[in-house]
Simulated scan of single mutants.
Amino acid sequence: MTRMTGQTLGLGSLRLDAAYCLILGVAVAAAAGKIAGVIALPESLLFATGGIVVVWAGLVFWMAGRVPMKIALRVVMGVNIVATALVAAASVTAASWFVVAVVLAIAIEVGLFAVSQAVAIRRLAATDAGSRLA
């Protein structure tokens, strides 16, 4: 089995991240009223957050094809780190342990995207270092 290049891994990570954000953003916006019933956050905040995440998904997809890969990965990774912390913090407002677990699972998923982007950045850096030596 061949190892993915940093470029391939980075592009895949960004595209998957964009798809995940699109699905999650639409779901949060559509279910904002129901989510507000189990998480002590205003429905309007949840709806707006879902919309922002949908817009972010479009921006991530755009960056994947138009911005140098290292820059796109660093920007998206940074936002994912902040989003992980915010989602994890939101879990403390949940009404039950099950909801806390679900919200924390989402935080972990977002954090894993940041990890995949960090791996892609490392592979890109290794490729750049190898080409300078050649």
Rank of each mutant, 00 (worst) to 15 (best):
T2M: 08
R3F: 15
T5F: 14
Q7H: 13
T8G: 09
G10I: 03
G10S: 11
L14R: 05
L16A: 12
A18L: 08
A18Y: 08
I23W: 02
G25H: 01
V26T: 02
A27P: 00
A29D: 04
A30E: 03
A30K: 06
K34W: 11
G37R: 06
I39H: 02
L41P: 05
A48H: 11
T49L: 13
I52K: 10
V54L: 11
V55W: 07
G58T: 04
L59F: 13
F61W: 13
M63F: 14
P68G: 00
L73T: 09
M77Y: 00
N80H: 13
A83Q: 14
V87H: 03
A88L: 12
A89P: 00
A94Q: 06
W97Y: 04
V100Y: 06
V102C: 08
V103S: 02
A105S: 13
I108M: 08
V110F: 08
L112Q: 02
F113G: 00
V115W: 14
Q117I: 00
V119L: 12
A120E: 13
R122F: 15
R122G: 03
R122H: 14
L124S: 05
A125I: 00
A125K: 08
T127R: 12
T127L: 15
G130Q: 09
L133K: 08
A134L: 12
